[in-house]
Nucleic acid binder design. Structure first.
Lengths: 99, 99
DNA sequence: TATTAATATAGCCATATTCGAATATAAGAA
DNA sequence: TTCTTATATTCGAATATGGCTATATTAATA
């Protein structure tokens, strides 16, 4: 891995390395959701949710489409799901005290 | 994944979400290396290398042992290798223009 | 057009990260 | 002890990030 690729990979990881953003990715694992649905699922405020969604959209992690007054977000970069599963397993193991 | 686990997972990801740190993890994939060897492999300055190594050690990603005047680092949290492979594949695909 | 629902953006403040230069420490050799 | 090699730490400055409140935008409907 050369330095340029490392920089790109770090960008993608940084885009996901945040509790709320991880939970958002998890919530979108099974398909698109509107901002309101994501807000409710996470119990976060509107502005915060929208900010994190836009951040991930800017970094190419998510994509969105508008339908009337609602905006639906979905996962654009499927690799983040794989990353999520890595850390998910890790958490699982950590929770059981064997990592 | 509850919020507490998400916070922990984000910590681990943040510990790796940096170009130099990714390259360090990659360099340690096949076993321990001294600080000097890592410096040379990455072409980074001594202080920077040491700082990033210590950061990852603090977060539980790496571990170290001293042998005389040299200090050897190794991967402590094997999950970071899995994460690395995820982003590595991603980079690979991106480099070939299909992601 | 005025109103309402849904989402986005701007500005602010506190805190965190990053990098670099300089200095400090640890251990072995002379 | 003094010197040298290898590594760690400290500190400062620049930049980035996170979360908050308030406000703006967008689109539908009355």
């Amino acid at each position: 891995m050369d330095k340029e690729l490392a920089m790109h990979a770090a960008e993608v990881l940084k885009a996901v390395a945040h509790p709320i953003r991880l939970l958002i990715v998890e919530a979108l694992q099974d398909g698109e959701r509107s901002v309101g649905q994501i807000m409710d699922a996470l119990g976060e405020k509107q502005a915060i949710t929208s900010q994190q969604l836009n951040l991930m959209k800017d970094k190419g992690v998510l994509a969105s489409r508008r339908e009337g007054t609602k905006v639906y977000y979905r996962i654009q970069n499927p690799n983040v799901i794989r990353v999520l599963n890595c850390v998910y397993d890790h958490c699982d193991a950590a929770a059981k005290g064997r990592s």
